[in-house]
């Protein structure tokens, strides 16, 4: 599927796929996603029966188990509305991975339909809603880790576009920026040694860049890097892009408020 060429979303009624990591650990990321999308005039529907996108089993090679979970997901997110996911990885599972494992399945059509209206968070904001500059303020040196599952999608560029537009925010490039953080889902526990080596390299490059904040669009990468960073002496503050956008909005409002009052 060519994500670069798809039409804008059918409506601003958004179904939120919160992802299992946010459901279990990172509730504030899901909350920030809601706040940001509502700020942009979207109405958010959170289907309560949602669980996971099926990616853990897909990557582990258990496609039979994965297909069961994907079928559940398709049923939960039925309809015409765009589905927005604050994770490049889970989004890629819907519009790429699921298509691969359903290649020879009779219900491939239903998967394709969901794939066509599923958007990664930053791609939805920039290319779906046409928002290319972000209001608010975030005075910090920020390192952006492009999550690997957004390779070949418009998400990385969309995230950077938003970050660059934020008042006070300084993007700090770092060495081997295109390299994986070492998470890779079950890879992180089946290849713990290589995964750790990759993570440490990433953290060293980020530390050398002088970044105060590490931001990414994927809580998988950030859980791995954050979990490793917690054991180091100096660690950047770790934020999902949705959190940073929300915090920038709040800071912008807080800054504008007194000057408005003064007038």
């Amino acid at each position: 599927m060519h994500l670069n060429e798809r039409p804008p979303p059918a409506s601003r009624n958004v179904k939120l796929m919160a992802t299992c990591l946010c459901d279990a650990y990172f509730d504030d990321v899901a909350a920030a996603t809601v706040e940001v999308l509502e700020h942009l005039g979207c109405t958010i529907d959170f289907p309560e029966r949602q669980t996971c996108c099926g990616q853990p089993a897909f990557n582990a090679g258990d496609w039979e188990s994965s297909r069961k979970v994907v079928r559940h997901m398709v049923e939960v997110f039925e309809g015409e509305d765009p589905v927005v996911v604050p994770s490049g990885s889970c989004a890629a599972m819907v519009f790429h991975g699921a298509l691969l494992e359903f290649e020879k399945e009779p219900d491939l059509g239903a998967i394709q339909a969901l794939a066509h209206r599923t958007w990664e968070f930053s791609d939805f904001i920039v290319n779906g809603l046409g928002v290319t500059a972000w209001p608010g303020r975030f005075p910090a040196k920020v390192a952006f880790h492009r999550s690997c599952h957004t390779r070949g999608t418009p998400s990385g560029e969309a995230s950077l576009k938003l970050l660059r537009s934020i008042d006070g925010l300084e993007l700090t490039p770092f060495g081997e920026g295109e390299q994986c953080c070492g998470f890779g889902g079950t890879f992180s526990v089946t290849f713990p040694n290589i995964s750790k080596g990759m993570g440490e390299l990433k953290l060293e490059h980020i530390a050398a860049s002088g970044a105060e904040v590490l931001v990414s669009g994927d809580m998988g990468c950030l859980m791995h890097l954050g979990g490793m960073a917690a054991r180091r002496e100096q660690t950047p503050r770790i934020l999902h892009l949705a959190q940073l956008l929300r915090d920038a909005l709040r800071a912008g409002v807080a800054r504008e408020a007194p000057s408005t009052a003064a007038r």
């Binding site: 669980t51 853990p56 089993a57 990557n59 090679g61 994965s66 069961k68 979970v69 939960v76 089946t190």
Partner: peptide, 30 residues
């Protein structure tokens, strides 16, 4: 990924890979 799926279907053991059957049951029961 295709080869991982093939290995699983052929019943080849993979050290350290968490089993996914029970997880799938949970993820299909809201």
């Amino acid at each position: 990924l295709r080869l991982r799926d093939r290995a699983k279907r052929e019943g080849i053991a993979s050290p350290g890979t968490p089993p996914m059957g029970l997880w799938a049951s949970m993820a299909t029961s809201p």
